[in-house]
């Protein structure tokens, strides 16, 4: 910080040059280091409201069947409904309520880690707040970022939000059983995804019935 005297005797310019988004990015890096030290694999689950983020986490946990070795940070505006839904699967869950905020940020994750019992935990899911815009701007320090979208969101979800899909390591299309009823062509959505992010695997699933879940587990590098 530099203070420069300007116009008049008591007016000063305080030079700050403070990079505000960079602060979140550096906190995210610190979170990642902390996960690495504890040998925890952290996965950020993003997606719109109602796309099936919680159901996907539940389905993965059920398939993995490793209960207490998994922790989940569940982000939500005000309720703990999702945390309770996930807790049933035996994972250790910490609820983070963001209140007015539409996304989790690295600082909230940093605080949540303090509240989590990480002894013996090998895998951490971070369920972001339902949103396809803001979370893209705020990395949390997770090793992998997965975006869930679903056929009930219509045929344009991916082309309309290229930013978040570009940042994803894995893209999941949920509720595949409803594609016909919704008149949505999953192959078109896959094409959209591949154009924006050719490297991310695109997996069709039905989180409720478990279809495609082994492929998601595989794409995330998890072992059953």
């Amino acid at each position: 910080m530099k203070i420069i005297k300007s116009k008049g005797p008591e007016i000063f310019d305080i030079e700050l040059e403070k990079a505000l988004l960079a602060k979140n990015r550096s906190l995210a890096k610190a979170n990642k280091k902390r996960f690495d030290r504890s040998k925890i694999l952290a996965i950020d689950i993003m997606g719109s409201i109602g796309s099936g983020k919680t159901t996907l986490i539940k389905a993965i946990l059920k398939k993995l069947g490793i209960g207490k070795k998994v922790a989940v940070i569940a982000g939500d505006l005000t309720t703990s409904i999702d945390a309770e839904r996930i807790e049933v699967e035996g994972a250790h869950v910490v609820q983070v309520n963001t209140g007015k905020e539409c996304h989790l940020d690295a600082n909230l994750i940093h605080q949540a880690i303090d509240r989590l019992k990480l002894d013996g935990v090998k895998l951490l899911f971070i369920e972001n707040v339902g949103n396809l815009i803001c979370p893209g701007e705020f990395p949390l320090g997770a090793h992998k970022r997965l975006v869930v979208t679903s056929v009930t969101e219509g045929p344009y979800m991916i082309v309309k939000h290229p930013y978040i899909f570009r940042e994803a390591d894995v893209i999941v299309l949920n509720k595949i059983d409803l594609a016909k009823a919704m008149k949505v062509n999953p192959s078109q959505l896959q094409k959209d995804a591949k154009k924006i992010n050719p490297n991310a695997p695109f997996i069709r699933i039905n989180a409720l019935s478990g279809i495609g879940i082994p492929k998601v587990i595989n794409a995330l590098g998890l072992k059953t």
Binding site: I11, F12, D13, L16, E17
Partner: peptide
């Protein structure tokens, strides 16, 4: 992709 608070002008 920056968001920078450059400077503040204050009266002391």
């Amino acid at each position: 992709r920056e968001c920078i608070l450059k400077r503040i002008q204050v009266v002391r």
